[in-house]
Design a protein around this nucleic acid. Structure first.
Lengths: 111, 111
DNA sequence: ATAAACCGTAGAGTATAGTCAATGGTCAAG
DNA sequence: CTTGACCATTGACTATACTCTACGGTTTAT
């Protein structure tokens, strides 16, 4: 699969794919042809990019996405650190909500 | 008032003061001495920096702080655009809360 | 055969709000 | 009179997640 096809299938730009690739977040990227230097992106990368997009919805950073992806590959039973990471992210989001609510209340008092 | 004194009185660093100055957020900065090139920061800047810190609590950006400060100088009756800006900021914060709450709920369902 | 569409790399730019380092000059205390 | 504390300027660096440009080579369609 060439980069354009992967871009189309995932809905992210070529540039973004190369960006992820440079960060070491993709897998099975080869250069199968001798007469050009085009790369081939394995099917697995469709799922990887979907996972990234999914995790980003919960405000995971790319660094965190990479950690989770790497861990998942390390242990076939997907769970232990994953749910810990989700719990942690949940706490963070709740703290942000709290802080914003306090700011909002202060603002309301002001107006 | 030299920069060090202003820094001490406001609790922000010299670097930050120079940063604000470059952004045109300070006033009455003169160079009253011929034998050195030390600057003199007018008393007014204490209040300016306090206003900036105050507005930042409500997540106003420096650009917005500058606009508000400039407007305030334009019209001695402080109110009209100011309260509009605060209303707008309030809506934004409430939208952020909303979004974070939705993310949180999605996360909770997931866990 | 040629133009459009694609591919690769490298490096710069975007936004925010500062912070840090280097350089050189100045002031105050002992 | 020298040491330490202060001042000014310039430019680079931080983090995040891309996006864009420039350059040159390749493939595909007409």
């Amino acid at each position: 699969m060439k980069i354009g096809e992967l871009a189309e299938k995932t809905g992210v730009s070529r540039d973004t794919i190369r960006f992820y690739e440079n960060k070491g977040m993709l897998t099975e990227v080869t250069r199968p042809f001798e007469w050009n230097n085009y790369k081939d992106y394995g099917e697995e990368n469709i799922k990887r990019i979907q996972i990234i997009k999914y995790l980003q919805r919960f405000s995971f950073t790319l660094r965190e996405c990479k950690e989770l992806i790497d861990q998942k590959n390390a242990s076939p039973d997907e769970c232990p650190n994953k749910s810990k990471a989700f719990q942690k992210k949940l706490s963070l989001i709740e703290a942000q909500i709290q802080e914003l609510q306090e700011t909002r209340d202060a603002l309301i008092k002001l107006i």
